[in-house]
Design a protein around this nucleic acid. Structure first.
Lengths: 348, 348
DNA sequence: TTGTAGGCGTTATCAG
DNA sequence: CTGATAACGCCTACAA
């Protein structure tokens, strides 16, 4: 008489009975076949197939206090920037027994905090979290989580544990400097969402223009709504109408840059002669566009790969020498901001 | 003397001791606060905070044989098509205690089968799986999983359990018919990846052209490599070079369509007059492009929302009346295939 | 409303 | 190499 019913599925005990061995032998045969004689192993495999046995992750995790879960938190599922990093994480974890538990924090620090709480209750093997702007409570939870933690996408001082990314401030600064170098003089900024990383890109942009004595707050056009190609066109049109002297824009990201290009084309503004455009991230489409679009190339796949590498190194007892990895970025100059032909022939 | 060490974290028993109650009372206070008196609840809450207690998901799942996990399998993390659906799933599950376990099958049926096996070992509450082309073994596992299963993105006969999507065959056919109706006569097909859904779009395309007596296998240009904007340009250039009479292309997806547009622009081919272009899915950028791009609009967000609704309905004991939901599609005609000005003024 | 007893399926520990 | 036993942390069932 059972006092309680489980899920009704076959358990290790059922397999053991069928194979005529003890359950611990089945457990071993499944986890580490070499530890079991070939004869028993064959019997066990047969029983497993006959019963269609599937091990219970939860029982295993409870008994071993190991979960094989790597918690991953990103702020968006639709932003291509994160999908490249996610793909790298899935690729890197593919060969290992580790599973990804993915959370979408929607660009909200409090939502991220909530998800961290939920995810930690799964006793994850490691945590990968986007950004460096965790709430104090979230930070505390992660510090006490007693597992490797990697903050990704960005670098900064004072990591919770480990970190891999690059400086968005420097990225924004480099983009602005490039436009200055190309001879543009009334350079605008188009920004959407305005999350912490976007804000730091704007800070870098501002710094470069200030150093050149040409920062004009009136040329900064931002919105907190989410980014899109359409929005890029809208922001450009509004800014260009308000400030006809605008001659270049640095866009927060590549979607906006593509939208700005389309917007310019619709308005009959020639790129790069009348308007220079630079984006951020260098999505694949940037080089295919007509004209091709300048962007700051970031190694998003590398970020995911390094994050997993760092975690695996720690788990293997050989923690990486550096707690912080800065993968940097590269400015990819393309047609949309290339005025070398003009610069070469002297001022107009 | 402990015979075995757990993770070392505080357990419900620790909280109970600290609060001076029994552990079951703590358990209840956490799950269903109304069942515990306010006085004890306050004590317990205090103890939880003091100890920084985090419940153990695995112990809970084992004891209750409920896991709160919804397994979701998609073929790609970088394809925007799936990110919209995923976002819907995360949004819909947000209010519930259910967690998403996401798997990336990389457009491989055998990889999907492998992941299904892994995921079922978590005893998921429900499974959402992309496509209708599961391997026989995968299908069998899902049929025996004893939980709601929803196949998404596509409709077809013989669902494993439930289904929500639309007909890619009809979508391809509608796109081709539209191009025919606009007066194009040498209509090509650009396809990447050639996964089952792409193949069915091509079948629909072919059918429409055959019905019109104008199908030409020589105008079908496909590759099994993954899709990209750049690839769209490459495929268009190759096809146009080989067949100068080409006057329209239906692209497998919107990335290819955008790439085809850029490719045409680079080659000095005017769209839509010399070349009509239609894509598939109607990503946001299509309406923003210059010229704007025709596409088959699909309700990807709706697919995710319906999938979760169906699951929740079953869990609540009120299974949906229809096992199969066809969300259909809409042709969005835009500038890239709009020849009404030509049709109106008669044949050239 | 609160508590007692015991099991969920697996694995760590210790013997043989 | 194999097995008996007792946890892992929580929850169901039943009782008070």
């Amino acid at each position: 008489m059972r006092k309680r019913k489980g899920a009704g599925r076959p358990t290790i005990a059922d397999v053991a009975a069928q194979a005529g061995v003890s359950s611990i032998t089945v457990s071993r045969a499944l986890r580490d076949p070499q530890k079991v004689s070939e004869r028993l192993r064959a019997k066990i495999d047969k029983a497993v197939r006959a019963l269609n046995y599937i091990p219970d992750t939860h029982a295993s995790a409870l008994a071993s206090s190991r979960s094989n879960v790597v918690a991953v938190l990103v702020p968006s599922l639709t932003n291509n920037v994160f999908s490249d990093t996610l793909r790298a994480i899935y690729d890197a974890l593919d060969a290992s027994p580790l599973q990804v538990q993915l959370g979408n924090s929607r660009y909200s620090a409090t939502e991220q905090e909530r998800l961290i709480g939920i995810f930690l209750s799964q006793r994850p093997t490691a945590v990968i979290v986007s950004g460096i702007d965790q709430t104090p409570a979230a930070r505390k939870m992660l510090e006490e989580a007693n597992c490797p933690v990697v903050q990704i996408m960005e670098t900064g001082p004072d990591p919770i544990d480990m970190m891999v990314g690059f400086s968005h401030y420097q990225g924004g600064r480099a983009a602005a400097q490039h436009l200055i170098d190309q001879g543009y003089r009334h350079i605008g900024f188009l920004g959407a969402r305005m999350d912490p990383r976007t804000t730091r890109r704007l800070a870098g942009f501002r710094r470069a223009l200030e150093d050149a004595g040409m920062f004009d707050p009136d040329l900064v056009k931002t919105t907190t709504t989410s980014s899109s190609v359409t929005l890029g066109g809208v922001l450009l049109r509004e800014l260009a109408r308000h400030r006809p002297d605008l001659d270049a824009v640095f866009c927060n990201n590549d979607d906006l840059a593509l939208g700005a290009l389309f917007g310019a084309q619709k308005a009959g503004i020639s790129v790069p002669d009348q308007l220079g455009i630079a984006g951020f991230n260098d999505l694949e489409m940037m080089q295919a566009a007509c004209p091709s679009l300048t962007s700051i190339r970031t190694d998003r796949y590398g970020i995911g790969r390094h994050a997993v590498n760092m975690i695996q190194a720690v788990l293997e007892g050989t923690p990486p020498p550096e707690k912080i990895i800065d993968l940097g970025f590269d400015l990819q100059m393309r047609q949309s901001s290339d005025r070398r032909h003009i610069l070469a022939s002297g001022p107009a």
